[in-house]
Simulated assay, not measured.
Amino acid sequence: MTTEHSGGGDLSRSLELLWGTGERPSRGPKPGLTLDRIVTAAVAVADAEGLGALSMRRVAAELGGGTMSLYRYVPGKAELLDLMLDKVVEFDAEAHPDPAAGWRPVLDAVARTNWRLHHRHPWLLQVDQSHPLLGPNALDVFEYALRALAGTGLADREKVHVMVALDGFVGGTARTQLNSAHAEQRTGISAEEFWRVQEPILSQAMRSGRYPTLAGLDEDAFSGGDNPVFELGLSALLDGFAAVIAARSRPNGPAKGHPNGRITADEGITE
Rank of each mutant, 00 (worst) to 15 (best):
L81Y: 13
E79D: 03
D239E: 15
I245P: 13
E143F: 07
L133F: 05
R72I: 01
G268T: 03
M163N: 13
V244E: 08
R250Q: 15
A53L: 03
G151D: 11
R196S: 14
R120W: 03
I245W: 10
L18N: 02
A101Y: 02
L134N: 06
G76N: 09
L238N: 07
G76H: 14
S130W: 01
R157Y: 00
V162Y: 09
L70V: 08
P75N: 06
V43P: 00
L124V: 03
G257C: 04
D36I: 03
D108S: 14
G102Y: 12
Q126H: 11
L237M: 15
A44R: 13
W19V: 07
A78G: 02
I38W: 08
G257H: 07
V43G: 01
T152H: 04
I201S: 11
T270D: 08
L11K: 09
A247I: 04
V197I: 12
D86C: 10
G216C: 04
K77H: 10
L134T: 06
R57A: 07
F194L: 09
G50K: 03
L18K: 07
D82R: 11
E199Y: 06
E184N: 04
G240F: 02
P136Q: 02
G216E: 13
A265Y: 07
A101T: 11
E49M: 02
P136R: 09
D10F: 13
Q126F: 00
M206G: 01
P105C: 10
H5G: 00
K256Q: 15
K87H: 15
N179M: 14
E219F: 01
E49P: 00
A246T: 07
R248F: 12
E184C: 10
G135M: 03
S6R: 11
H96V: 04
T113A: 15
T213I: 11
F91C: 07
S130I: 04
D218W: 00
F230L: 13
P97R: 12
L70W: 02
D86V: 07
L166Q: 14
G64E: 10
A48W: 02
V127C: 06
V244A: 13
A148M: 05
L217Y: 06
R58L: 01
R58W: 00
Q126L: 05
V164Y: 01
M163G: 05
P75V: 04
P228W: 11
V229E: 08
L237A: 10
L80N: 03
D218C: 01
V74Q: 03
S180P: 00
S55N: 05
G257D: 13
D36M: 02
A138D: 09
G240E: 01
R250E: 15
A109Y: 09
L85W: 03
A109M: 07
Q185L: 15
R24S: 05
G135R: 05
E158Y: 07
S26Q: 13
G224H: 05
D226A: 15
A247L: 13
L139Q: 09
E231T: 13
D92E: 14
Y73C: 01
Q129A: 12
A181E: 15
W103H: 06
V89K: 12
A255T: 12
R250C: 04
G52T: 08
S69I: 07
A265R: 15
